[in-house]
């Protein structure tokens, strides 16, 4: 496995497409920063950094279906399909690597590929956002319309950590899913539309759960079935406290409930293993041309 890993790292270093994608990712991050800066200037004359700040840029940049997020699986598909069409997989089998090891190496290499792009993109977004707007300014715009409707302008304790854990699992799942389809079709043509369509559908369905009055049962099903639910769902948690004069004070903050967090971890781990195992079984029994 280490031989396959070293070979992958060498190829990645030499791969112009990967380097170009990294530059594109960095450019999109800078463009997004400028866009949010403009928005702050247009709406608040630059006095408040409601849109452009560290935490909002961090959360926005982690989305797998917005901005640069979709470019990651698309590039991963291209890279993986080329492994098949250029005969690298064939040569590796000929030189004695088992199909099981090869498939696992495709997944591990895919993780490195995806996370390298993601980390560069997220770090630039987060870094520029924090540098210009600060990490957590008063009244920052988190979670979009539903958080405003819920009156939440702050993030709950541990929310960022939860989002990061879920994001890591979501991208690990997307890599497993992407490698599964890329090695199933071995062709860019059908692989890209399938992967993009599924991701967009998952994201779309997860936004339905933010609608007011949505059935609680539907939300529960989505928590379990939809791996993007935890990352996309914005939950406003309200707590009440009493002040010294016995007045009730309502505190609203954006957070992730334990149910959403743990079901998000569970469903993503399930999908990672399901696609990894399914892909492995199919790859072992399919011929390599």
């Amino acid at each position: 496995m280490s031989r396959l890993f070293k070979a992958f790292m060498f190829k990645l270093r030499k791969d112009i497409t990967f380097r170009v994608t990294l530059i594109v990712g960095a450019s999109v991050a800078v463009f997004l920063t400028l866009l949010y800066l403009l928005l702050d200037y247009a709406l608040f004359e630059g006095e408040e950094h409601v849109f452009l700040n560290g935490q909002s840029m961090l959360i926005t940049s982690l989305s797998p279906t917005q901005n640069f997020g979709l470019a990651i699986p698309v590039n991963l598909i291209t890279y993986t399909v080329l492994e098949f069409t250029q005969g690298s997989i064939r040569n590796k089998i000929i030189s004695g690597h088992s199909k099981a090891k090869l498939y696992l190496s495709l997944y591990l290499n895919g993780l490195i590929f995806a996370f390298s792009l993601l980390i560069v993109y997220v770090l630039i977004c987060f870094g520029l956002g924090s540098l210009i707007g600060g990490f957590d300014p008063e009244g920052s715009f988190i979670g979009g319309i539903s958080s405003i409707a819920g009156g939440a302008t702050t993030l709950g304790e541990g929310y960022i950590l939860r989002i990061l854990i879920i994001a890591v699992l979501v991208y690990a799942g997307i890599v497993a899913f992407t490698i599964f389809f890329a090695s199933l079709f071995r062709n860019i043509g059908p692989s890209i539309p399938v992967v993009i369509l599924v991701l967009i559908m998952c994201n779309l369905v997860s936004t339905f759960t933010s609608f007011p009055g949505i059935d609680e049962k539907f939300i529960w099903v989505m928590r379990i079935v939809n791996p993007l639910h935890a990352l996309s769902a914005t939950e406003v948690i309200t707590t009440t406290t009493k002040d010294a004069y016995d007045n009730t004070i309502v505190n609203a903050s954006v957070n992730m409930t334990n149910e959403t967090f743990f079901s998000g971890i569970g469903s993503n781990i399930f999908y990672i293993f399901a696609f990894l195992f399914g892909g492995l079984v199919i790859f072992k029994h399919r011929d390599v041309k």
Partner: peptide, 30 residues
């Protein structure tokens, strides 16, 4: 199979790399 080499149908090469880089790439996984 480490004692075997094969060219089946078409040559398996990475087009974006030089001959030397293709050789190094193969050395690494061999």
């Amino acid at each position: 199979k480490r004692q075997v080499s094969a060219i089946v149908e078409t040559a398996s090469l990475v087009p974006s790399m030089t001959a030397r880089d293709n050789m190094i790439y193969q050395e690494l996984y061999l």
